[in-house]
């Protein structure tokens, strides 16, 4: 693991915490981290990173939290049913902002971000040949979320996502 990738991941976690907090949601580091390795939550966004750093960012959120994020992110009040229709988009938009705000002046340049790729799946797993995928797990009162960075060690394959249900 190179230092610049570790630093980028550190900025990602700070950005994720800040953006979630700004929505009025308190996020705490999860004590269950070791048992959740490789498991994705219900709403997952993947963003490819290229340039000075190569790899992929994954932002994955439990369904209940995704609904709360949608209700918090939208400026106008929405019903739970309306929030459900916006949840996927809010997770995508939030992942975009988290990644964008993780690119700082002091970090390596240039870093380019792809557009979010979203998928909704229960009990999916991610497997990667990357030697050191980085992950931080958080709990909130309304469910958990994770932020991951998978450095690209091989051109041919970044990661495999398996839906086990």
């Amino acid at each position: 693991m190179r230092q610049k990738e570790a630093d980028f991941f550190s900025e990602l976690t700070i950005s994720a915490e800040n953006n979630i907090t700004q929505l009025g949601i308190t996020a705490k580091l999860s004590p269950q981290a070791s048992t959740r390795e490789g498991n994705l939550d219900d709403y997952t966004s993947f963003i490819q990173v290229s340039g000075a750093i190569q790899g992929g960012v994954i932002f994955t959120v439990e369904a209940e939290l995704a609904l709360l994020l949608a209700q918090s992110y939208l400026l106008d009040p929405v019903t739970p049913d309306e929030a459900k229709t916006y949840a996927v988009e809010v997770v995508a938009e939030l992942s975009n902002v988290i990644c964008g705000n993780a690119i700082t002046e002091r970090g390596p340049h240039p870093i380019y971000l792809g557009n979010p790729l979203i998928f909704v799946a229960q009990q999916a797993e991610i497997r990667t040949r990357s030697a050191q995928p980085l992950a931080q797990y958080y709990d909130t009162d309304n469910g958990s979320f994770q932020i991951m960075f998978i450095p690209m060690d091989q051109e041919s394959e970044l990661a495999t996502i398996l839906n086990v249900q």
Binding site: Q22, L75, N96, V97, G100, N101, A102, I103, I111
Partner: peptide, 28 residues
Amino acid sequence: VSAIGHKQQVLEAIKLGAKSYVVKPIER
């Protein structure tokens, strides 16, 4: 309208003739 990390693109947009920019998340 952009996240902070897209600073280079924002600067390019201003050079091209955009009048201003707003950083996400948008504050009213």
